[in-house]
Structure formats: structure tokens, C-alpha cells
Amino acid sequence: MADTTGTVQPETADIGEDGVRRRDFINVAAVAAAGTGGVITLLPLISQMAPSADVLAASTTEVDISKIEPGQAIKALFRRQPLFVRNLTPKEIAEADAVPLSELRDPQTLEERTKPGKTNWLITMGVCTHLGCTPLGAGPGEDRGPYGGYFCPCHGSAYDTAARIRKGPAPKNLEVPEYEFTSDTVVKVG
């Protein structure tokens, strides 16, 4: 590779097998070091696109539930995503309990999805597990779909009164976030 010197004669005669090898080794090492440096440089450039510290810092949202009548639901905002808080009627609870688990795509009972003694408070994320649209059914007068829970208009996923997926392309039930009742009327989510 070093015979590119025009009319200047490289003294190949002086350089034995070892010399050639040593030269190649240093060149390969230098190029490899440059390559390694280049790859390491990519790491911060990739990492800077990941969520920043302020986004990762888990925030909490408090929701006042005292004004939600049975059968009604409200939407709140939790970590920049919609949150559904629904006060189920006894009829809706019975409907949810009546479904055999074997019929469900993502088998879970209503009791598993609510807090003990507060089965009427169904608190879920308002994010369809298909592609992330916000399903209808929490706002007043919105279409609750064929199973009386939520209905996602984007691609037709229907959720039942326990917000479990029953029909359509969504693979999972609406996610239940971490939350606790700080009093009978206030829920702290997150």
C-alpha cells in the first residue's frame, strides 16, 4: 500500500517481513482507534433522544372523585396521557363479573383491576392498547360500544365495563396505573 510514492523508491529491500507486519499493525491499530472513538461518540448522540430527567421524574396526579355519580366517568391527565375514572353502577359490575374468564383475550377479573371494597371505582389509562388512541365512553354522551365500556373509534376496539378488551384489534385490557385512595373522595395516581 505504500508503493504510491511516485518516482521515489520506497526502500522495500530494507524492510523485512517483520517490518511490513509492524507497519500494518500500527496502521490498523490507528484506524481501529479512530473507529472506536467514532462509535463511542455515537452513544451520547443516541442517548440524548431518550426521555430527559424531567420527563422521567415520575409525577403524581390527584383526582377528586366526589362529584362522579354512578354510571358516570371523567377524564383526567396523568403524565401527559388521559386517565379514565369511572364510577360503575351495580348493574355494570354484575355484567363484568358475569363474563367467564375463558372468553377474554386478556383474562382478568374486575376485582383484580380495582381496589378491595372499591370495586365500583374503575381507574384506567385512556390509551387504547392497539395503537394509542383515546377510546370513547368516558365523556358524557359518548359511544360506549357494544360492551358498554369504552369504544375506540380509530380501529374499532371495544372494551367492556371492566375496561377489558372484548372485540377488535387491541391485544390487552386498558392499563390500570398505580394509584391509591388518600381519602374517600381523593385518588392519588402514580
Binding site: 451520547p44 442517548s47 440524548q48 430527567a53 424531567d54
Partner: peptide, 27 residues
């Protein structure tokens, strides 16, 4: 990608880069 050219928030987004964005201070 992290800066906002608005006189209300430009200074704050610069500080956001310095404090919160991964490797933002270095970049």
C-alpha cells in the same frame, strides 16, 4: 431537538439542555 426559539422559554430550554437532557451539558 431540545431548544425552543421563543423569547419566553429560550433561556429555560437552554438550561433544560444543561440539566435534564441526557448528555445535554456536553453537547
Amino acid at each position: 431537538m431540545h431548544y425552543a426559539a421563543n423569547s419566553q422559554v429560550a433561556f429555560a430550554t437552554t438550561e433544560h439542555i444543561m440539566r435534564d437532557v441526557n448528555w445535554g451539558w456536553m453537547l
